[in-house]
Design a protein around this nucleic acid. Structure first.
Lengths: 195, 195
DNA sequence: ACCTGAACACCGTTCAAGT
DNA sequence: ACCTGAACACCGTTCAAGT
């Protein structure tokens, strides 16, 4: 058993991910370096490469694990307007939990574009509930996600005052805008019925 | 006169900015390094530091010059709905012109948050036209900007199919959603009148 | 005033060698 | 199987020295 001279315990992927996520949460994606991470784990920088193909691969890995931890609203029969608000708030909460990582995800297509993510599944379910026709689901969900992401991104990056009350109002404004737009029937996204 | 042995002409800020912008447009912000830029200009890397304080300062500089070149809709009395569409399209066009730089700007608060930017001036003018009360101007413009930015960002980063026709429809959907939301009076942004 | 080379403190990653 | 040190090819930036 060729275990680290310095540690006595072998490295594990989970241990690496946890430490990497901590570094990113604390110092942003730029604050994560393979060398710093190795130092944090009391290990030679090159040892990491036996568990992870590259820094990018490691980042994708911690993005996926963080994303899987996001709690989304259940399919419990509440009105779609309410579920839409709950979804936006859940997304917002997740973003506040891991701001730097969230920003990174939204700047790297591959990760967020995966339609199998439960985020997209839930969003499309709610939009069906709102009466959005099947052939408009993709575009409408893209637009709505972009909207809410835009708001959250702007807030995370301090493009606007960070007063929590103001934040709540702003997100409410955004969701109301969406809900009324859907109810009213925006061009290219005309729901057949409401509620 | 201590002029570069290799060049014969002294460096100028404009020359530096132009080359830097070109490098960013071609290879993204990560594709810009002081050393590559210097090579491009046939100059010693350290010469750059006589014209620019740091790489970050240089980036802010080219952001500002690019932003000042954006063409915004004039105050010509056309309906606010139309002006809002024109503004969104102008923003979109600018983003397509310098995608990497645009993304960078939207990931760096200081630059875009400056309310003196003509972008904000024009947006607030149009929103006043739409009947948004003075005390709601800030929040409403933040939300709308975040919305359109979110769409454009998602598109630039390939979160969605890049078919130009689809792109047009998507932006139209977004603007319609905003316009109808404003007309209908979303919570926290209730216009007093329309047209 | 403007430019330069050497140097410092960092990166991610490859590779051959150790146990 | 897992770990390691040396090395390569990069960074941004400081500093003292050149003209």
């Amino acid at each position: 058993m060729a275990v680290s001279a310095r540690r006595g315990t072998p490295l594990s992927i989970d241990e690496i991910c946890a430490a990497a996520l901590r570094l990113v949460d604390e110092g942003g994606v730029e604050g994560l370096s393979m060398r710093k991470l190795a130092a944090e784990l009391d290990v030679n920088p090159m040892s990491l490469y036996h568990h992870v193909a590259s820094k990018d691969a490691l980042l994708e890995l911690i993005c996926a694990t963080a994303a899987s931890r996001m709690s989304l609203p259940p399919d419990d029969g509440t009105p779609w307007q309410e579920q839409l608000r709950a979804l936006a708030l859940a997304y917002h909460r997740h973003a506040r939990l891991h701001p730097a990582l969230w920003i990174h995800v939204h700047n790297h297509p591959r990760i967020i574009a995966d339609r199998r993510l439960s985020l997209w599944q839930v969003l499309e379910r709610v939009l069906r509930l709102a009466g959005v026709p099947e052939e408009e689901l993709r575009r409408t969900s893209d637009v709505l996600h972009a909207f809410v992401s835009g708001i959250i991104l702007a807030e995370l990056q301090g493009h606007l005052p960070d007063d929590p009350e103001e934040t709540g109002r702003r997100l409410a404004t955004a969701v109301e805008l969406i809900v009324r737009g859907l109810e009213g029937g925006a061009a290219g996204a005309r729901p057949a019925a409401r509620g």
